[in-house]
Design a protein around this nucleic acid. Structure first.
Lengths: 238, 238
DNA sequence: AAGGACCGGTACGGTTTGGTACTGAAAAAG
DNA sequence: CTTTTTCAGTACCAAACCGTACCGGTCCTT
């Protein structure tokens, strides 16, 4: 549980934007949690127990089908919250959600969130805008998956992760990047090698560091940016 | 405008499910419209003027980026409505939406829909569930785009269109199918030829007819079905 | 009925990516 | 400090798909 005066230290964009009256509906139910790498947050078809307002770290939302095909459909960091279906009036998870890069956050029980939303139009409005932002991200992931080359998709992913991180070091193996992008691990290795040769990143075992973000943005081209701009617009005070 | 007694003739699943009290908020603002092939419904970055509850026909929602890469991220038919962002509290369209297969529907002005939603929790709940269903569809489109082969994606698209049609004849050129799937027109031609050879479809210029749906489902495999099952669950009375 | 636009069948080389697998190096476990 | 596991670099062939193009047939227009 977080007291009102504790809000100053909060990094999460949504918690930040919650009005004082709305905070009374949310704050008392928040629980600060540490989130380890690979920690599971939601499991397909199972009830969502909590929504996580992330502070540090990156969560992956991965769509899975009946034959176990899987691909990442979105990432969530300090700009949003997990448990989007709760906002939409659903209590079950469709996708697999887990921490891709460990960190921390504040979680709230599913019922508490739903009843808070039910009590406040403004709170629900904020949550819906966040959900809408996530939806746009998913749509552009579909676009990138269908149209972009491996290099562009990798660049896009790195940028999206970087946006949500406090350092330039992405602590991930090629294997995990490959799973998220839905490509071969070897393909990721080769692509990263290309980035490295061009001086865009440096690598260590299990870690990749962005050194030339602008260069990576150039590779991603227009596959990166639209969801980010839209989210900014959605959450802009007006 | 539709009188209450006119609801009997309505095919749209959402309009069907609207409770009588909620109908008073929606019905009086509905306007029955014919929707031609390729008729534009939403334009990226522009305000959404109306939400369309489709009766007949299929609408395509196509994500576009700054470099004009485009791909379909979802289809909408009699099971839902266009203008999902309105439900999320946004007034602008991110994606291009247009009728892929002409038909008809009932449209409501954006303001009327928003104020109706604001007045009724149950109405908003229904709309949100529909939006959630669309979101799941988009996520699985991302999955198919990243993981499925052209043949599987084509099969998936045909099944999704067929679900929303009243006949087995899909009046579309290979060119349009290619745009939606984000592949070459020639690739679609070859794939369709394969379907035809296996007796799954018959073709005429500008038209394709499903003759063995089960066979097409077999090709699509698990890339088809999950969003459909989830939507059914979401809209099930409980 | 003639002209023009559209549609689809086909082809070909080139690029991208997949599937698979082997290897040495680095980190973790014992 | 040794053993085991994990990770990344590399290789090879095959499949899928793209870019492009040509062309004949079909449909629409006038």
């Amino acid at each position: 549980m977080l007291e009102a005066h504790a809000r100053a230290g909060i990094r999460n964009r949504l918690l930040h934007k919650i009005s004082l009256p709305d905070w009374d509906l949310i704050g008392p139910h928040l629980e600060t949690v540490t989130l380890k790498d690979r920690q599971v947050i939601e499991v397909p078809t199972k009830p969502i127990t909590h929504a996580y307002f992330l502070e540090i770290g990156v969560a992956s939302v991965v769509a899975v089908d009946a034959e176990d095909h899987r691909i990442e459909v979105g990432v969530i960091g300090y700009e949003g919250l997990t448990g989007v279906p709760l906002i939409m009036g659903d209590t079950r998870a469709q996708h697999s959600t887990y921490m891709q890069i460990g960190g921390s956050g504040h979680r709230i029980g599913a019922e508490a969130l739903c009843s808070a939303i039910a009590k406040s139009d403004s709170l629900r409005g904020l949550m819906l805008k966040s959900a809408q932002g996530f939806m746009i991200q998913t749509a552009h992931t579909a676009l990138a998956n269908g149209r972009a080359k491996l290099e562009q998709r990798l660049a896009r992913w790195l940028l999206m992760a970087h946006d949500r991180m406090t350092t330039d070091a992405v602590p991930l193996t090629h294997e995990f990047l490959a799973v998220m992008l839905g490509v071969r691990r070897a393909g990721v290795t080769v692509a990263i090698h290309g980035f490295e040769r061009r001086g865009l990143v440096t690598t260590r075992r299990g870690q990749l560091t962005l050194v030339n973000r602008a260069g990576i943005e150039q590779i991603a081209g227009s596959f990166y940016g639209t969801p980010e701009a839209e989210l900014k617009r959605l959450l802009a005070d007006k």
